[in-house]
């Protein structure tokens, strides 16, 4: 009969297959090792990238806070500016003093 049939039924194939399977096991081991190493490396790189993305975001966040801070400073200054103080004093019932005499008192 043919070589192939003989191989199949007379053990030659079996031996070939057994060898193939052993080889496959070795290759599989290699694949697993390489995959593990690769994924470790990739995880590192990915973490790095993620962190730097965070850094950039935080820096943009700082800039945003800065803007808000300045806006608040301006608002505070506006509320304590002289014209506003005068307005608020008048609203509270104070009147601009016309004649002011200062008394000199001894220090307690």
């Amino acid at each position: 009969m043919s070589v192939t049939w003989q191989k199949r039924t007379h053990g030659v194939q079996r031996r070939q297959e057994a060898f193939d399977r052993a080889l496959a096991r070795v290759f599989l081991g290699g694949v697993i090792v390489i995959t593990l190493l690769g994924s470790l490396y990739l995880a590192l790189v990915a973490t790095n990238t993620r962190l730097s993305g965070k850094v950039w975001q935080m820096e943009e966040g700082i800039a945003e806070w800065q803007r808000q801070n300045e806006a608040l400073t301006v608002e505070i200054a506006r509320l304590s500016s002289i014209p506003v103080l005068i307005q608020r004093s008048i609203a509270l019932g104070y009147a601009p003093a016309a004649n002011v005499h200062y008394l000199v008192l001894p220090e307690p």
Binding site: E17, D20, R21, L23, A24, R25, F27, L28
Partner: peptide
């Protein structure tokens, strides 16, 4: 017969 193991590894 087992399947082709080298194929599976590939």
């Amino acid at each position: 017969v087992h399947g082709d193991s080298l194929l599976l590894v590939t």
